[in-house]
């Protein structure tokens, strides 16, 4: 039972990690916490559903199409909404993302408010058995995708000039602009990339969660908790936080009480933050004056 719970925890945790990663990428580059990210998950999944079931495209084309659509949506959000508020307090920026969340949810409810739809999996295969442990192909895909994305973004942010731009643009936008960086264009690109990541996550996750307008809410809550646990702004921390949340939930459910599954992760977060306020991998921000 331990092995199965652990594997299942990693699988669920990969969903949280994927969402936390997308939110962290945006946070790292713009210092904005996007509370609408869960709805970008949802929007991406619904776009795939429409392209797949109604337009009749193949899965891969529909998935790519959804990423492109959400890429565009992210850019529009930044250009049309967030850029106009770039000097506003962080709380106002956060409130705007919450409003975007409700807007996307409301639009989805107009069309699918009465439905909980099945989303076909990427690979329709029977579960794989490794001794007593059972893993589905979808679990492997989600886990593999999360791992691949975290490696890519870690490398980008640490070693590439794009990563340096991201740090500069988020820490000192004026300074970055003074040295010739097109900060608005960069931010727009990051919003678009983050939204596309949301779509990618939604496409992977919807076969597990089922597809309905409120599917992003639970994921967002846990992703935010994962970011907090791992350390805000830390890419690896977001993933570790997500995986840890998933495993803790499963272990508590399996060995303590199933009614504690929803709260277990948050109890651990409280404990971690009391001991280490910056999270597991977070660092204190140093400001030179």
């Amino acid at each position: 039972m331990f092995a199965q719970l652990f594997i299942s925890g990693l699988s669920n945790g990969s969903i949280y990690a994927l969402a936390a990663l997308g939110m962290t990428v945006l946070f790292r580059a713009t210092t904005v916490v996007n509370f609408g990210f869960g709805e970008m998950f949802m929007a991406g999944a619904f776009v795939v559903y429409v392209l797949l079931k109604i337009v009749g495209l193949s899965y891969i084309v529909a998935a790519l199409g959804a990423c492109v659509v959400l890429f565009g949506l992210g850019a529009v959000i930044e250009l049309g909404l967030m850029r106009r508020m770039e000097n506003a307090p962080h709380l106002s920026l956060a409130m705007m993302t919450i409003a975007i969340s409700f807007l996307l949810k409301g639009i989805a409810r107009v069309f699918w408010g009465r439905e909980v739809l099945p989303m076909p999996p990427i690979f329709n295969m029977p579960p794989l058995e490794f001794g007593d442990v059972i893993v589905t192909a979808q679990d492997l895909v989600i886990g593999g995708a999360t791992l691949a994305l975290v490696i890519v973004f870690l490398l980008v942010f640490r070693f590439s000039w794009l990563g340096k731009i991201a740090q500069a643009a988020s820490q000192t936008p004026r300074g970055a602009a003074l040295v010739g960086l097109n900060v608005p264009k960069f931010r727009c690109t990051i919003w678009a990339v983050s939204a596309a990541m949301g779509a990618f996550g939604g496409i992977l996750v919807a076969p597990v969660t089922l597809l309905y307008p409120d599917m992003g809410g639970q994921t967002l809550t846990r992703a935010f908790a994962a970011m907090t646990l791992g350390g805000f702004g830390n890419l690896g921390g977001a993933v570790v936080g997500g995986l840890a949340m998933g495993v803790i939930e499963q272990m508590v459910g399996g060995y303590v009480d199933t009614s504690l599954i929803d709260v277990a992760g948050y109890i651990v977060i409280i404990a971690v933050l009391l001991l280490r306020p910056t999270g597991l991998f977070g660092r204190k921000e140093l400001v030179r004056v």
Binding site: Q4, S8, L210, G217, Q250, G253, G254, T258
Partner: peptide, 13 residues
């Protein structure tokens, strides 16, 4: 056993 609203996994149960 309990399975909460919004759950997407029932492995422990």
């Amino acid at each position: 056993l309990a399975l909460e609203r919004g759950s997407t996994d029932a492995t422990p149960q």
